[in-house]
Amino acid sequence: MKIEFQGSQVNAPGGSIEVGYPVLDARQVGDLVVVLCDWMAFPNGAPARNLFAYGLTGEALWRAEDIGMGEVDAYTGITSEHPLVAFNYACFACTIDPNTGEVTSKQFTK
């Protein structure tokens, strides 16, 4: 099944997931549904931490950590699924551990 999304709803293989924020992208990565939410829906002045993982049946598993860049610290796109890499607004490509949401490496790209 292809992952589909509209508004804050993600349709995953195990059912519908309400994520609470507008969804920009959602991907199935193994047994995970990785969801990138719109960073502009988060409070200003703090890291957005807008990348989440859910199980295929909708249980929340993790929220990716920020990389310490302050208010410009938000994920803007998923650029790879294997390994899981998300681009950051502060111009970093961040490799994310799919088991924990921990940033295992970051590469400045600008």
Rank of each mutant, 00 (worst) to 15 (best):
M1F: 14
M1W: 03
K2F: 05
Q6P: 00
Q6W: 09
Q6D: 09
G7F: 05
S8P: 02
N11D: 11
A12V: 02
G14K: 10
G14V: 00
G15R: 00
G15W: 06
S16W: 04
S16R: 13
E18T: 14
G20C: 06
G20H: 02
G20K: 01
P22N: 13
P22T: 15
P22C: 09
V23D: 10
R27F: 06
Q28R: 15
Q28G: 07
Q28K: 11
G30M: 04
G30A: 10
G30V: 12
D31A: 08
D31L: 03
L32S: 05
L32G: 00
L32M: 01
V33E: 03
V33Q: 13
V34P: 02
V35N: 04
D38N: 14
W39H: 12
W39D: 05
F42C: 01
F42M: 02
F42S: 09
P43R: 13
P43T: 10
P43G: 05
G45L: 12
A46C: 01
A48H: 12
R49G: 04
N50A: 06
A53P: 09
A53I: 04
A53C: 05
A53V: 02
G55H: 05
T57V: 10
G58W: 09
E59R: 06
E59H: 03
E59M: 02
E59P: 00
W62I: 03
A64C: 13
G68T: 15
M69A: 05
V72S: 07
V72Q: 11
V72M: 12
D73K: 05
D73H: 12
A74C: 14
T76D: 10
G77R: 13
G77Q: 15
I78M: 14
I78T: 07
T79R: 14
S80L: 10
E81H: 02
E81P: 00
V85Q: 08
V85C: 10
A86I: 13
F87A: 13
Y89W: 07
C91K: 15
F92D: 11
C94M: 03
T95L: 00
I96L: 06
I96N: 05
I96T: 12
I96H: 04
I96Y: 07
D97H: 11
P98C: 06
N99F: 06
N99T: 12
T100N: 09
G101D: 12
V103M: 06
T104R: 09
T104H: 07
T104M: 05
K106D: 08
Q107K: 09
Q107V: 15
T109H: 01
T109W: 00
T109D: 06
K110P: 06
